[in-house]
Design a protein around this nucleic acid. Structure first.
Lengths: 199, 199
DNA sequence: TGCCTATTGACACCTAGTGCCAACGGGCTA
DNA sequence: TAGCCCGTTGGCACTAGGTGTCAATAGGCA
């Protein structure tokens, strides 16, 4: 009846449960490492059953990257919003720099996440799977039209793969300095180096 | 007593068991897809116990890439044997083209392998993990000295990441045409494109 | 032949992930 | 307010990958 239009109790409960699970997981992973924590323990810490954990997250890995799919979608939209006539590398650079700036603003969360990822090779592989999705997404954004020529598709894929390489290099460098340097500048430098033919 | 110096029976048996397991796995994976085959079935087909399978292969995934680690080591050696003063991209190109040629000669096996990998996202992620190892290996080969400056290390890592992107693009293109085209030429074109700044 | 030891099979156990069903409890309607 | 509907949950059983343990087997060798 009120005009606040608050979400129903059920919705709020679900959101809280999801958050509780993610927080419990992050606390445990951070303390003992991803591999040394069981889903049962996460569920217990969040006060739900093990079965319920899997209703909120499709796998133990997925709880580590709760927003990655949103990020990938935004990256794609950022490329899309640039002039399609522009140099594709320029378009990717634009999107990368914006996301890089956001990463710097979200430093603490990203750093916690990275600390957890480093603790497990399985998790590293999982993040690679997510990188592949991003790569496909970039390639699609760079493909001029739905019925693009094969050569154009190939070029878009090559560029997407190379851009992923650049992004990963910049991030690695950032993390190597404890995320205390300027990620935007690192990304710019990496793209500059690429523009000059890696000389 | 003979001068043939044949390996002892035990060694030969072990080698045969390993091969039996790999062949049984390939046959089953090829027929039904990686995810629809259990380790128990592979073991049964090779006439050993499930436990024994894991004595020969550390995981179900690893049996799909029985020689990948050797390949990575050879790729590194190929880079190493080039003049260290040469352009790093040239050195990588050299190693890539040699491996590409070998791939073409080993077409059937590679194609079977690729068919299996495509059947499972988990396997794709596993191959990514192997790509990461290759990337690290390339970066190490490109690092001038053990005590290289940080900037040099970073550049080596960036180049390694980009080269992986190029290799993956060339392979993707090759597989897209059923491995009937010239992989060496595809790789050359990809490197050319990179040299020209992806224009 | 007989001893030593590498390899194997059998068994128990842990964990991720899924299907199923009964119980609980919001949310809406009479 | 009472009562029904159905979304959410917990419990249970089950599959499958992977590991530790131990006794049995079978090479290798004196």
């Amino acid at each position: 009846m009120g005009m606040t239009n608050q979400p129903k109790l059920r919705q709020r409960k679900k959101l809280k449960t999801r958050q509780d699970l993610a927080e419990a997981a992050y606390a445990l992973f951070g303390k003992r490492g991803f591999d040394n924590v069981t889903v049962a323990e996460i569920a217990q810490a969040a006060d739900v059953s093990r079965r319920t954990f899997f209703r909120y997250f499709p796998s133990k890995e997925s709880v580590v990257f709760p927003h990655r799919m949103d990020l990938i979608a935004r990256f794609r939209r950022l490329i899309d919003e640039r002039d399609k006539k522009e140099n594709p590398l320029r378009r990717c650079r634009y999107a990368t720099l914006i996301i890089a700036k956001e990463y710097m603003g979200d430093r603490d969360r990203i750093l916690r996440q990275h600390h957890i990822v480093k603790s497990s090779t399985g998790l590293i592989a999982y993040e690679y799977k997510l990188d592949l999705i991003l790569e496909e997404s970039i390639a699609e954004a760079l493909t001029p039209s739905r019925k693009a020529k094969a050569a154009q598709r190939r070029r878009a894929r090559l560029i997407a793969g190379v851009v992923i390489g650049v992004i990963r290099a910049a991030l690695r460098e950032w993390f190597a300095k404890d995320a205390r340097t300027n990620l935007v500048r690192l990304a710019e430098k990496a793209f500059d180096l690429l523009d000059s033919g890696l000389e």
